[in-house]
Design a protein around this nucleic acid. Structure first.
Lengths: 181, 181
DNA sequence: CGAAATTGTTGATGATATTCAACAATTCAA
DNA sequence: TTGAATTGTTGAATATCATCAACAATTTCG
């Protein structure tokens, strides 16, 4: 694990706060912030939580950077799996998305069409609105069957799956933001 | 910091370890594990890390559950947040997009509805697919009338305008990154 | 049954974190 | 320049943690 103090220091700088101002918000002493950032002390969980709260960052978010590197490894996999044919037809809005931040698709699923489990590891978001038919959407350990008018939206890093569980064709419009940095 | 002890206890039970055995692996005293699990002490970050290491779990993984549990991925049509702007109705997928990079809208234009000239200066992109009706889209000095199945897509920094030129309602699904409101 | 091992808990003690206050260095405004 | 405010850093005092050892309760096995 990278130096906890260095990480905190960087985060504080990012928010544009001084040690004293942060300490005041968190209800701790400025000396404590100084000692933590310089690695001269090993703060308690509760204290660290108060400081992170003052920065508007949860523990999960604070440590997300650690696993971010790992998620970046799967980035290519996700990219390659995105475009495929078969029983599913993707109509992409626009042709050259190489320098784009937004991808919009008009998707048509034949009856029974299934994307299978896909693990897109890039830091992106996606969502969509169902126009016709019945689509089973699975995200993580949650699963729902959506009908016309319903919608979904989730971080792409979560494992997800789409399956047409209706008797007819399923049509939807989806959007996805590729990684911004 | 309510259930840190409870969470650790559950995780330890899941791994089938006793307090003493876990303590031995982590190089801490069994009393410490007991005190943490019962919430009678506030352990230091370093100590907690040693314990989590002994359990084969990173900080990021340990806290990952917190941020994922609350997230909502599915929205019934009636749950879509309504943003009304006169003759134009926006149904937004998701309610709080403050930490989001993607906004998806289900839009309904009454006959004659017009957004007027608008220009977003920030670096964003937007696009959409027409589902019903006839929509005149003006971007820069270009203008087109789109019908069901047609689509558009452009950088938000360009001046643009939407107008329902059909006799009936116009419906579309749009996406924007980052959110404009 | 009964002895030995293992479970989780608790009080006293040494170790360490946290605070308070003062410090020099820097920035800002008069 | 001068004074006031802010920056991050330390020494001494206090509060808290982490440990050791002993405890009762339970399980294991002869």
């Amino acid at each position: 694990m990278q130096s906890l103090g260095a990480k905190l220091k960087a985060l504080r700088a990012e928010k544009g706060l001084s040690q004293r101002r942060l300490a005041a918000r968190a209800g701790v002493s400025n000396a404590t912030v100084s000692l933590i950032e310089s690695g001269r002390t090993d703060p308690s969980m509760g204290l660290m939580k108060r400081i992170l709260d003052a920065l508007g960052v949860s523990f999960a978010e604070f440590f997300a950077a650690d696993s971010f590197v790992r998620e970046k490894y799967f980035y290519r996999h996700g990219e390659l799996a995105t475009i495929s044919d078969g029983p599913i037809t993707y109509l992409q809005v626009g042709s050259d998305l190489s320098a784009s931040q937004l991808q919009i698709l008009y998707e048509r699923y034949a009856p029974g069409a299934d994307t299978g489990q896909s693990m897109l590891s890039h830091d992106a978001e996606e969502g969509g609105v169902i126009l016709r038919g019945r689509l089973e959407v699975t995200v993580g350990d949650q699963s729902q069957v959506l009908s016309a008018g319903d919608a979904y939206r989730f971080p792409s890093r979560l494992p997800h799956r789409f399956r047409n569980v209706g008797s007819g064709e399923c049509v939807l419009v989806s959007a996805c933001t590729p990684p911004s940095f």
